[in-house]
Amino acid sequence: MTPSLDAYVMLSSALFAIGFLGVLVRRNTLVIFMCLELMLVAATLALVAFSRFNGTEDGDVFVFFILTVAAAEVAVGLAIIVALFRLRQTIQVDRLNSMRH
């Protein structure tokens, strides 16, 4: 007996919500970035599940591209965080508020 599509969709939505919670609650830029990755992976899980249960391969190919873009995104994002740290000596988002006023 295989798990149903509903189970996979609910799991991926729960995973997405956990990542969203982390983005809202945490103050460390690196942790926020990790939670963003979590949300991305949750979306890929839903894509793979839909692709499997509908018998098409387009979702799988799309996930392949998502993984490539995610690798590029992580590299650029971490470079920006390192540059930010060099400039401001902090990566806590509540101290990076020079655009606030």
């Binding site: 295989t2 149903s4 599509l5 509903d6 969709v9 609910m10 939505s13 729960a14 997405f16 919500a17 956990i18 969203f20 919670l21 809202l24 692709s51 499997r52 249960f53 509908n54 018998g55 098409t56 391969e57 799988d60």
Partner: peptide
């Protein structure tokens, strides 16, 4: 986060994705 997960699951339930078995071999 609770609102988000409720909304997504409501869409999943109302959309009647169904509990059918997977189709084909899997790409």
């Amino acid at each position: 986060a609770a609102l988000l997960v409720t909304g997504l699951d409501l869409i999943a339930i109302r959309g009647r994705l169904g509990g059918g078995p997977p189709v084909g071999q899997g790409a």
